[in-house]
């Protein structure tokens, strides 16, 4: 037992040491919400079990390789015809099985938990997510606004993402808030995340979707409900409307700046609903979109995520 405690200490210490070494954000290991938190605990638990395996194998390896080198002085113990040992082999079949069980149980529980609202006592805020080549579109059906390449969410309140994709598949990932899920054409996927407190977090596209995939980073801005409402109000009063024509233009392959719109066409909600219905039917009839490949886009400006505040982004 004492051995185990020291091991845990060792892990935690080494993690902290490495953190200091890099001196930067390690979002997966610095969870900012209940979903990432659950995953973080699972990750720590698996690292702990796996370190146990590594230590056992490495020690055994070091001892055996050193002790039984051919150049040693006394080779009287050389036993070239040893066949094997039922008992030993049974032991190292059983121990991995136990380790797997110790990992499988919390895995299953967490996997089921992550399908649900992380804070069931609070009503989730809904955001519709659409990935396109090479930008993220976010619709906020409760407030009727739309943002591109920036995501605002209320802090301390679960957010339910309903996700789809125009064209190629992608994966929506906010490491500090929790694990990712794919966005797919003609389909919807659901993902719950929650930010504990206000802050700006890194959002990533995790599944390659063509040429300028690397430019699909986005800022996730969590604000407390009041600030969030103010932001919504500001968008409604100052930003332009998004028309269907503009939308169709927007989803064509291109890299665009951060944008906000005071409203978005109703068709998008219907489309999302249709996708949801179609998940089971699969009888899709969506029209072929002309995919004229990107015209020479100006990629000259460097990306910079250091000043991750507000509407500043790459183009």
């Amino acid at each position: 037992m004492k051995h185990m405690k020291t091991s845990i200490k060792l892990i935690v210490l080494s993690v902290i040491f490495l953190l200091l070494l890099t001196g930067c954000d390690v979002p997966v290991l610095q969870p900012q919400g209940p979903v990432a938190e659950q995953q973080y605990h699972l990750i720590l638990w698996s690292i702990f079990l796996m370190l146990f395996v590594i230590v056992v194998v490495f020690v055994l390896f070091g001892v055996i390789v050193f002790k039984y080198r051919a150049s040693r002085k006394n080779t009287d113990d050389y036993d070239p015809e040893k066949e094997g040992s039922r008992k030993l082999e049974f032991t190292w079949t059983i121990i991995p099985i136990i380790i797997v069980i110790m990992l499988a149980i919390p895995m299953t529980i967490t996997t089921y938990d992550l399908e649900k609202n992380p804070s069931p006592e609070k009503k989730p805020y809904v955001v519709n997510v659409t990935s396109a080549q090479w930008k993220w579109l976010f619709s906020y059906p409760e407030d009727g606004i739309e943002s591109v390449n920036v995501l605002h969410v209320p802090a301390d309140r679960p957010v339910k993402f309903v996700m789809t994709s125009e064209g190629a598949m992608n994966s929506f990932w906010i490491p500090a808030l929790g694990g990712q899920k794919y966005t797919m054409n003609n389909m919807t996927t659901k993902l719950y995340l929650e930010a504990d407190k206000p802050g700006t977090y890194l959002g990533k596209a995790a599944n390659f979707n063509g040429k300028y995939f690397a430019h699909m980073n986005f800022n996730v801005i969590a604000q407390d409900q009041k600030d969030f409402n103010n932001w919504v109000k500001k968008v409604k009063s100052t930003s332009p409307k998004l028309t269907m024509d503009q939308y169709n233009q927007l989803i064509k392959p291109s890299v665009v700046k951060v944008k906000t719109y005071s409203s978005y066409p109703k068709e998008l909600d219907e489309k999302m609903k249709k996708n949801m219905d179609m998940m089971n039917m699969g009888n899709s009839k969506s029209k072929e979109k002309d995919q004229d490949k990107d015209k020479d886009m100006d990629m000259s400006k460097d990306m910079d995520m250091s000043g991750m505040k507000g509407d500043k982004s790459h183009e």
Binding site: L42, T110, S171, Q180
Partner: peptide, 12 residues
Amino acid sequence: AVAAADYQYHNS
């Protein structure tokens, strides 16, 4: 292989 944790490793 830990599915729930894989959400944080996938494609990284």
